[in-house]
């Protein structure tokens, strides 16, 4: 266990420079913003020069780059960066929208898992059969389908034709919050009508977002399962006369290691897909908020959201790496 501890400490230490790097890139993004937004924030062409000057002062737009960098990092860290449009602290606005995005990503992830893993196992067990070919083509179609197109297609089928999904508004959050993810809270506190409402609203966008990764995961599960099952220890188990199902259980355990990695990568893909999915399904999450703030030239929000997305992604990767080390003792180098 001592080795695991060492690994964790080293891994968490590399986390810090990555985050600093992320803030640097975010700053570069902010730095190439021309000084004009000050005028837009002050109210366009009719804005008085003093107001523009005041805004420039407040957002340190005239200061040298290091001062701007410190201002930005400090603003995000202490939540004092103010959205010039809504006059709220940027992180407060993001916090209101975060649960929607998170819930969407979780549901998409669940879809990816419950479709992808069985599909992969079936195509591994029926290797080089019709089923295998179909899964392969399904995987390729999955990565080739534009999220927005699939979204509108399914809206047409499930909303316009059959009316089995809800597309308006977002159901309220349950009164008692435990995990701050509404759908899980509703389930935990026993508010089943609310849970049903959330499910009716989120299942379709979740499926659309998860669709892209499903086929990829299936192919990956297939390959790593096949690799695991061709190991020498499997031959040994067969020779020993262990029943088939038990052998599969052993193989699955070994196949799990690479699958965990690919799941971590998929999570990044899911996060990246949220702006498009939220725009198609009119969900008020972080992604659609970013798009709105781009249309309003609301750059502090873009900067903060980009940072938050990167933070989530880097943290997810950290968790994956730790899981990886816990599952497989060989990686604790």
């Amino acid at each position: 266990m001592a080795e695991l501890k060492k690994f964790l400490i080293r891994r968490i230490l590399t986390f810090v420079p990555t985050i600093i790097g992320v803030t640097l890139i975010v700053f570069l993004i902010a730095y190439v913003i021309p000084a004009d937004p000050a005028k837009a924030w002050a109210g366009g062409e009719k804005a008085s020069p003093e107001a523009v000057e005041r805004i420039k002062e407040r957002y340190h737009l005239n200061d040298p780059w290091y001062a701007q960098y410190i201002f930005l990092v400090k603003g995000i860290a202490t939540n004092t960066l103010i959205d010039p449009r809504t006059s709220n602290p940027v992180l407060d606005d993001i916090r209101d929208r975060f649960p929607v995005t998170f819930q969407l990503a979780i549901i998409a992830f669940i879809f990816t898992l419950i479709i992808g893993i069985p599909l992969g196992l079936i195509s591994a067990l029926k290797r080089n059969s019709i089923v295998d070919t179909i899964v392969r083509i399904f995987a390729l179609i999955g990565v080739s389908t534009p999220v927005f197109w699939l979204g509108y297609l399914l809206i047409f089928v499930f909303f316009v034709k059959f009316r089995i999904t809800n597309l308006a508004g977002v159901p309220p959050t349950p009164a008692t919050q435990i995990t701050h993810v509404p759908i899980i809270d509703a389930l935990l506190t026993g508010e089943f009508t609310l849970f049903k409402q959330h499910l009716a609203r989120f299942w379709l966008p979740g499926f659309v977002l998860g669709f892209m990764g499903t086929g990829v995961l299936a192919r990956f599960v297939r390959n790593s399962f096949l690799e695991a099952i061709s190991g020498d220890y499997i031959e040994f188990l067969k020779a020993k006369g262990v029943p088939k199902l038990k052998i599969y259980r052993h193989a699955l355990k070994n196949a799990l290691v690479p699958i965990v990695t690919v799941l971590g990568l998929q999570f990044g893909g899911l996060l990246g897909g949220t702006p498009i999915t939220e725009t198609v399904f009119a969900l008020p999450g972080m992604g659609s908020y970013a798009i709105q703030s781009i249309q309003n030239l609301d750059f502090p929000v873009i900067v903060a959201i980009t940072f938050i997305y990167a933070l989530i992604y880097v943290t997810a990767n950290l968790v994956v790496d730790i899981l990886y080390a816990v599952i497989d003792p060989r990686v604790r180098y």
Binding site: G21, V22, V32, G268, I291, F299
Partner: peptide
């Protein structure tokens, strides 16, 4: 390390942010 910094972002998110701020320049 520089590569890692760029890979710390979900690709589409970074592309969105950059294409939002670059046009004027």
């Amino acid at each position: 390390r520089i590569t890692d910094m760029f890979l710390a972002f979900p690709a589409l998110i970074l592309a969105i942010a950059l294409s939002a701020v670059l046009p004027e320049r």
